[in-house]
Amino acid sequence: MQGLPGQVVNILNYKLFWVLCGAFLTGSIYVIILLIKKIQFSKKHAFARELNRLTDKSKGAAGSELEVYINNLEARLETIITLNKEIRDKIFRMEGQMRVLMSRGEPENTSGSLEERIYRAFDYGKPITEIARETGKDKGEIELILNLRKLKNTSGGEVM
């Protein structure tokens, strides 16, 4: 019986140790969460202060600084748009060249009407200027023939 109170004390000390560890851990997590929220709060306010500084019209230099920044962004956007158009044009030309290269395996059929030769060359990806040069016709004439074909196809074969 004499050992019983000592065992009870040991068990209580052991449980108290883990309770204190849990409380310490919970408190530490709470402090860390508070610090994170404070940092986020200060970052939001720093951003808001910077935005207010840039948009404050009463400060002439800061307002012009924002305008310079916006103009710089607009110039970059224009550059990106121009590059995008150039890339699309290059891809279109490359697709046409690929069609031409793929068609070179087939012998060119010079027989048939002028329209058929123009249709075939265009379908294989030749540029209109090259078709015009090969046929000896004007570029506008080639475009007209191709547009008439498009009209025939969309109207069911009838052209006014």
Rank of each mutant, 00 (worst) to 15 (best):
I70Y: 03
D123L: 12
N147H: 07
N13H: 06
E95Y: 06
K15M: 02
K85R: 15
D89W: 06
R117C: 11
N71H: 13
T129G: 04
F92D: 02
Q2C: 01
L51M: 13
V9S: 14
L148E: 06
S103D: 12
L77E: 10
F17N: 14
E65H: 02
I131H: 02
I142S: 02
I81K: 15
N13M: 08
A121Y: 00
T82V: 03
I142R: 04
R133T: 09
G6D: 07
I91R: 09
R53C: 02
N13L: 03
K85N: 13
S111M: 10
S42F: 05
W18S: 12
S28G: 08
F92L: 07
E143G: 14
F17L: 12
T55S: 11
I145G: 01
E106R: 15
S155L: 11
S42V: 09
R120Y: 01
E158C: 06
S58V: 04
A61Y: 01
L34D: 05
S42M: 07
R93E: 03
L66M: 12
F92K: 07
E106S: 15
G125V: 06
K137I: 00
I81Y: 15
D123C: 05
A23N: 09
I142C: 01
E116H: 11
S103T: 11
G140Y: 03
L12V: 11
R88D: 10
K139W: 01
E74S: 12
T55D: 07
E74I: 08
K44F: 06
L101T: 06
Q40P: 00
T26H: 08
W18K: 15
E134P: 07
S28W: 04
T129N: 03
L20K: 13
M1F: 00
R49A: 14
G136W: 01
M98P: 00
L34T: 05
C21D: 03
S113E: 00
K43I: 13
Q2P: 02
K38P: 04
V9H: 07
T82Q: 12
Q97A: 01
L144F: 05
K59Y: 09
L114D: 09
G156E: 05
Q40V: 11
M102T: 11
I32V: 14
K38M: 09
N153E: 11
I81F: 15
L144I: 01
Y14M: 10
E95N: 10
T79S: 14
R76K: 11
N13E: 11
E67D: 13
L73S: 14
M1S: 02
A121E: 01
N84L: 03
G27A: 10
E134Y: 02
G157L: 02
E116G: 09
